[in-house]
Design a protein around this nucleic acid. Structure first.
Length: 272
DNA sequence: ATGTCAGGTCATACCTGA
């Protein structure tokens, strides 16, 4: 089973790009961020025609998240994080797909820092971490995927010294990410590629992609009950080079099939 | 500071967020 996360940066403006990639990569589940469209402007018919069921939580102009499932209808289990009824941003949607709980998130950018936007980012991160603990405690197989807007370490930034005061890299934010991981989550890409420079985002400015001046900010986190099934994790870099591309590339993981006969299966992938 | 996008509007040229 392949699960991807892709910040599309406008699902309608870049629909052809998204559909092209879906057709080639055929991921089983896709977490999409930055729809930049209200619920009634989500291109549900086109997504369905591509073979995907979907749940979405849209918003006019900004934010917006969706979960796509190939040949299946995701069952929505939550929209919006608990902990702040006054939060109007559409940044979290969660669904069950074939026994796996998928949380799709778009963590606030937080710039400029310091400031109210940065405060909101830190509060949102805290709410995410609290909810993540609840998910872990359930024991269910969970994937938390999306645009976290945080580079976890120096290895995840082309020029760390230039980003130390940025909301995506300030110590408070890296610390928040570390606390989340330490609950027991597995950062899929970093686990399979511990020493590689891997980026998922390149700014549109100054030929950032051409210079490979990138950031790793899109992450897939696995609960312990599913982490043992991780067999691959990659970035579809080529997608970033295309016409009308998002500034993010899709990131995907491959999970070995769960043993249908024993739902509480082993923590390690089975070998032939 | 620079740069590039997409979406939205007191619209055909700006503004914002990223």
């Amino acid at each position: 089973m392949r699960i991807a996360t892709y910040n599309v940066n406008g699902i309608n403006g870049r629909l052809a790009n998204l559909l092209g990639w879906l057709g080639e990569a055929a991921p089983d589940i896709v977490c999409v961020q930055e729809l930049k469209a209200p619920d009634d402007k989500f291109p549900g018919a086109a997504v369905r025609a591509a073979g995907y069921g979907a749940v979405w939580h849209g918003q006019k102009s900004w934010n917006g998240v969706a979960i796509l499932a190939r040949g299946a209808e995701p069952t929505e289990t939550r929209r919006g994080l608990p902990g702040d009824p006054d939060d109007t941003h559409s940044r979290y949607v969660e669904a069950a797909v074939g026994g796996t709980i998928v949380g799709c998130l778009y963590l606030p950018n937080g710039n400029p820092a310091p400031g109210p936007k940065f405060d909101y980012k830190l509060r949102w991160f805290e709410r995410l971490t609290e909810h993540a603990k609840t998910l872990l405690d359930s024991g269910a197989p969970v994937v938390l995927a999306g645009d976290f807007n945080v580079m976890p370490t120096d290895l995840d930034v082309y020029a760390p010294e230039r980003w130390v005061d940025d909301a995506l890299f300030r110590p408070e934010v890296r610390e928040a990410y570390r606390r989340l991981i330490e609950q027991g989550w597995t950062d899929a890409l970093r686990t399979l590629h511990p020493n590689e420079r891997i980026y998922t985002f390149w700014k549109y400015f100054r030929n950032a992609f051409g210079r490979d001046a990138g950031l790793r900010i899109d992450h897939l986190l696995l609960s312990p009950s599913i982490a043992g099934r991780l067999v691959a994790a990659e970035v579809d870099r080529d997608v970033r080079s295309r016409q009308r591309a998002s500034d993010h590339a899709p990131v995907w993981i491959e999970l070995a099939e769960a043993n249908a006969a024993s739902p509480r299966q082993a923590q390690r992938p089975r070998t032939a």
